[in-house]
Design a protein around this nucleic acid. Structure first.
Lengths: 335, 335
DNA sequence: CGGGGTGTTGACAGCGCTGTCATACCGCCA
DNA sequence: TGGCGGTATGACAGCGCTGTCAACACCCCG
């Protein structure tokens, strides 16, 4: 009546449950004919092993946990989507959890997922290195994505934050811009710090001095960025171009531009976002390529699950400058 | 060394594992003092029951499964996010899975989730009613979201598709539009069919006859919609307004508008999307309010988990017309 | 022809928990 | 005082699987 168990398969096939178990797990030293007979019984009964039972007595769930800031952030949504797709291919499923950018919750969620017996964890951490390191479990394979957070004993996949930012600002400089604004809460993550460094570097290359009035590092959300962007764009010596160090900063700038009816300010945003190509003008972005990041993270996780002692890797993927229009605007004539 | 088990708590507290189990499950007939002593031991050892073991021998995992078309669709991403948040509040976690709009995969994923022993399932189905009904399990609580698909024996949460569409088209008619295009693959879902009905109804009210040249029901993705939208907007007697029956159709139209440099065509899209308010002009939408939908779905699921025999509910939530600009454009003077 | 692999299979004990049933004790009434 | 019902607790058998170890059949070699 209920789901068939390994005992039903054993009875049906005429072998012991252990042999059935061997067939399920593709263990060596089972005669080909035996395998076939057991397989036939499995097929006949539509048997599927119970993951919870498999997990008992050692073992892990065929499940991988994904912990991100927020699931409906387009960047993370894509990460989750790719990981889910990859996991499905190998018969695993995905537990999602979010931190809401709360350190206590980050900790709690990691513990919960680990307790669930997941085979591996993909985590986008944040916060102080010592806290993060303490929060990450040592008995479960973990891959850290997007933000390093000082973690050195786990595999990490991230992007070239500094280089990407440099690319962005160089791109603007090449169009003739000299007054280039920066928005991004550099104190929040090392990634944003790196992006600021990239900004500085590109300016230095061009012999442009950093103008503190064009650098805004206090805002974190789009709502917070908006008034700053508004102020920055409204001043007398407003920047002719802006580098938004995150999509949220970008949204703040776009809102400000809309409010001021200023579509002439060049803009490059670090991080692609949906329908960026349909904006007026279409937004030039530094694409962090979340799919590639997630793909790599999955590969690394699979590798570590298979070999927990493998060498710890810090993978840095290149970003991609996607020119769409907003980053190619020339400086206003009157500035 | 390893995680403490119920035996450790039993030893520490001086009671049997069964009594500890009773305390964990808040069973009746346990002396208050005993409860306190056991709780203290649990606290001391930082004990947490193993969900996999709890699930064995009857029982369900403290987990709810969510199955949607695609996790990085903004609509579904928000649904997943809300459900994850609600689940976390009650100590459950969330398994995500996607169908990729493949019927076989829909079936497979449902079976996988059911086998995992989830306590409940939230599913956005599609396809023929008989297939969908066959695919949905009867031994696991299920809530169907967004699309009814002929399901009658499960709780359903959806929105007023027809009314929303009528609202949208009435809104356009009220601005003076008489030639109003429709895009949406009506054969795909009952929801799209309903939206078409709403379109027809609003036109009929206004005494406008449906012009077959303004109705495009073949496209499903944004890529497919684009050429149709292009064709529709480029003809001599092009519509002065368009009702896009889904966000994907909307993207197709927006691309066409961008391509043709036509920002004068009024547009209402069924379904909100990120940064719609930053478009030029900002896009007027019929908001399906995914958060409310997910909230309701969670409530219904909780209710059904608690009482599997509860009356089956078909909940229809209202949509919300959000005027932002594109839907308030007047007809072009020359049409 | 015996000894020592190697390949194939099964018996059985857990894994960490909950359900069933038994036990011990209490107060109470006849 | 015996017995009954109710409360508090524990012993023990599963749940469905995998790990350990033993058993048995072969085969090759000396």
């Amino acid at each position: 009546m209920s789901r068939p168990t390994i005992y039903d398969v054993a009875r049906e096939s005429g072998f012991s449950i252990k042999t059935v178990s061997r067939v399920i797990n593709e263990a060596p030293n089972v005669r080909k004919e035996t395998v076939d007979r057991v397989r036939a019984a499995i097929e006949l009964l539509q048997y599927h092993p119970d993951p919870a039972a498999q997990r008992l007595g050692g073992g892990k769930l065929p499940t991988i946990g994904v912990l991100v800031d927020s699931i409906d952030d387009p960047f993370f949504a894509q990460v989750v989507a790719v990981i889910e797709a990859r996991a499905m291919d190998v018969g695993m499923d995905v537990l999602v959890a979010s931190t809401g950018m709360d350190e206590t919750r980050l900790r709690m969620q990691i513990q919960r997922l680990a307790r669930r017996g997941v085979a591996g964890l993909v985590v986008a951490p944040f916060g102080e290195p010592e806290h993060v390191s303490a929060a990450l479990p040592d008995d479960v394979p973990v891959v850290v994505i997007d933000r390093r957070c000082g973690v050195t004993d786990k595999d990490v996949v991230r992007v070239t934050d500094e280089q990407g930012a440099t690319d962005a600002v160089r791109h603007l400089v090449a169009r003739g811009h000299r007054r280039i604004g920066f928005l991004g809460k550099t104190s929040a993550f090392n990634t944003l710090e790196d992006r600021y460094t990239g900004y500085e570097k590109a300016l230095a290359e061009a012999g442009i001095e950093v103008d503190a009035r064009l650098v805004e590092t206090r805002a974190w959300t789009a709502d917070e960025a908006y008034p700053y962007a508004l102020a920055m764009l409204a001043t007398a010596d407003a920047p002719t171009a802006v580098f938004a160090a995150s999509p949220m900063m970008g949204l703040g700038v776009l809102r400000a531009q809309q409010r001021l009816h200023r579509q002439d300010v060049a803009l490059v945003i670090f991080g692609d976002y949906p329908v960026a190509e349909l904006m007026t003008p279409p937004t030039t972005v530094i694409d962090q390529r979340p799919s590639a990041l997630a793909d790599t993270a999955f590969d690394l996780l699979a590798r570590r699950i298979q070999d927990p002692a493998a060498e710890v890797l810090d993978t840095v993927l290149p970003t991609l400058l996607v020119p769409r229009g907003s980053g190619e605007l020339a400086p206003r004539a009157d500035s």
